[in-house]
Design a binder for these strands. Sequence first.
DNA 1: TTCATACTTCGACCGTAGCCGAAGCAACGC
DNA 2: GCGTTGCTTCGGCTACGGTCGAAGTATGAA
Lengths: 228, 228
Amino acid sequence: MKEGPVIASVAALLGDPARANILTALMDGRALTVSELAEAAGVTIQTASGHLSKLDAANLLTAEKQGRHRYFRLSDPDVAQVLEALMGLAQRTGATRVRTGPKDAALRAARVCYDHLAGERGVELLNGASQQGFIAGEEQLALTDRGRAFFSEFGIDLNQLEKGRRPVCRACLDWSERRSHLGGALGAAILSRLLEKGWVRRDAGRVVTFTCEGLGEFGSIFTLPAQS
Amino acid sequence: MKEGPVIASVAALLGDPARANILTALMDGRALTVSELAEAAGVTIQTASGHLSKLDAANLLTAEKQGRHRYFRLSDPDVAQVLEALMGLAQRTGATRVRTGPKDAALRAARVCYDHLAGERGVELLNGASQQGFIAGEEQLALTDRGRAFFSEFGIDLNQLEKGRRPVCRACLDWSERRSHLGGALGAAILSRLLEKGWVRRDAGRVVTFTCEGLGEFGSIFTLPAQS
DNA sequence: TTCATACTTCGACCGTAGCCGAAGCAACGC
DNA sequence: GCGTTGCTTCGGCTACGGTCGAAGTATGAA
């Protein structure tokens, strides 16, 4: 009678389809306006506005005003992580209406999870990095010396990352693969670098597409057994 | 409009106060009957029965019939983990009605999280084990050779644990401490052992109480810097 | 057989919360 | 000033879902 309700109030927020749509639309880490979110959720602007104030009041979102727009984003990577965890549960749960549309396939292959790479490629990335000794651990991840060398070479400023409050490496459970992929500051930095290098492109929504060349490069680094 | 609803349906299940109470009542890993759960949730038996069939249909619970009773338990440690994660969110979220009752204090000190130790003691356990080199990693945990020796000595059959499908070590985020404690098969085995040794006692609900002697022993092992 | 217990199903009631139309603000451009 | 755009607030409608009383099923005991 006491602790139940505390989880119920949050869960109830996530439990409305419109709000759930809003949140998943924000899972790519971008900030979106009220009207964009209304469209994503399939409701009118007034309705979306109402939902957004609730989510904001619960600190699941943060709002930022810019001129006459209001941009909303997830307030924290933790929120995204809980959402992914719920998707995982939803699958096991049998609520899986096996909807194998083309968009679904693309999502499974590679997508953005808040600000890092997820899906098949995301899992490959972490597996490859582990196999080659760049990253150690299974649930609590740590960067190895070898990894430091590699990612510096790759163009990532590790000192910079380590200054922040955010953990550098973080295992994030992938709802489609049921395995972990790499989150945290390093995960985010890698995705940025992949974009800069032109290996991947961000499409509408959370889908990430590899260029032909990018897929080759990525594969030669991460999906082959250690090539040394 | 497509992936939102999948998380919404699960979240909506968790979002009803009565169901949330039922689930948190089951978080200690025990199996309870319909009537017990009805009382825990503060609703009539018919109502509870309805909720339980929904939770069961969603595979969040598993039912087991024994005579004229029906026992329900959480279907999986994963479910408990998501619930703990939600509690964490609920806190950050400001839904924190800071209710510092005596029971709350006891819960914070030591409690059962599905089947392993959580709360201050749980976090101490993992910290101590890490500091002394029994367990390596930060998010992905692994047992070290030294840890194998120690826990065997402690009375745990590690070979047995490693046979099962369940991961031996698992970091589980503690909602009250905002740090990880040790879950997985090893976490469960340690709690059993603590009970067997008479170091701790399980009270009503999820509260775990240390005996005077038990607290001393536990402390000398886990809360001091390595005593070697 | 009869009664008691444990639970499920049915039916009806009621409240809450989501939804939209309309109106009200606020920021920007002209 | 006026009009447009982006968003919020208000009011009323509606429907979904939680709730309980009552009746029905199953197990076990006397």
